[in-house]
Design a protein around this nucleic acid. Structure first.
Lengths: 163, 163
DNA sequence: TTATAATTTAATCGC
DNA sequence: GCGATTAAATTATT
């Protein structure tokens, strides 16, 4: 890409820097839920904040995604979603305090709440964008239809003349 | 579901939940992106001039103008990132001079470079913080394991005695 | 397949 | 400059 073409410039300081080896990153971000040995015994009741354990104690295959390092997908209940949606209608930017309260009430981690609102806002933005786009498109379409109609009428006139 | 049972706590009035109590929050409620639907034309995106964005009003919570005026996300090429990472390994606080040089070489604005290094440092800090945390947690976990093991051993002794 | 939870990271805000 | 947070873009799961 253009960004990477070598220029004819004399050696910059950067060139020296760039000649150094690039040791790849050896640390991964810490993913507590990916730790195998760190299961908790009290799986029955959640609300243990920040202490995460494999969601499916049965399957311990190392091929599982939680093993690989991704947090297992949270399945919100209808009820939880209802509450979140209701709050969202009034305040789609809940502060930390509200998020914590929601976390307690819904028995979720505060992180899940925050992510939920982020994704929810993205969804709203997407919807608005699409509806705006559709508005434009229908407007343009209307223009096209009118032109077509006008063309047809003109053509009919011509035909009348010609006939 | 358990998440939704009503608790007996009366002190959970909706105003607090929705953060309506603080007038400061009131004006930021539920009004994102809808107000001014100004779709801006797709910017050239590479070396576009610096001031195409509305200046940020004095105090800005997440509000609509803040969203609308947001700079379109820069998509760095792999090559650009590689160079930046390489430089970062040597100097994660590049001065203005080095940043300008990088900007020229990578065909980016110097601002993008600066932001990149800021974010990169934040990432590094986060990683270090979390790896430290993990160290502590595994240490604590080890303690727990040792206690458990000791308990088991004690129990075995007891059983031996009893049998 | 779609919807959406989760991840990564560029950009923004307040300090 | 840093911490926190956001949006954008993407990945991946159910």
């Amino acid at each position: 890409m253009a960004s990477c073409v070598k220029t004819e410039r004399p050696a910059f300081f950067i060139e020296k820097i760039l000649e150094l080896e690039t040791p790849e990153h050896f640390w991964k971000l810490h993913r507590p839920w990916a730790e195998i040995g760190a299961e908790k015994e009290n799986v029955g009741h959640t609300l243990s904040s920040k202490q995460i354990y494999p969601p499916h104690p049965q399957q311990m295959r190392p091929t599982c995604s939680w093993y690989i390092g991704r947090r297992p997908r949270t399945a919100f209940t209808n009820c939880q979603v209802n509450v979140l949606e209701t709050v969202f209608q009034v305040n789609c930017y809940p502060g930390i305090q509200l998020r914590e309260q929601l976390a307690v009430r819904l028995e979720l981690e505060e992180d899940r709440i925050q992510i939920w609102f982020q994704n929810r806002r993205a969804k709203l933005r997407r919807a608005l964008r699409e509806s705006r786009l559709q508005l434009v498109q229908t407007a343009v379409g209307d223009l096209g239809v009118r032109r077509e109609v006008k063309g047809h009428l003109d053509l009919e006139k011509e035909e009348e003349k010609g006939g």
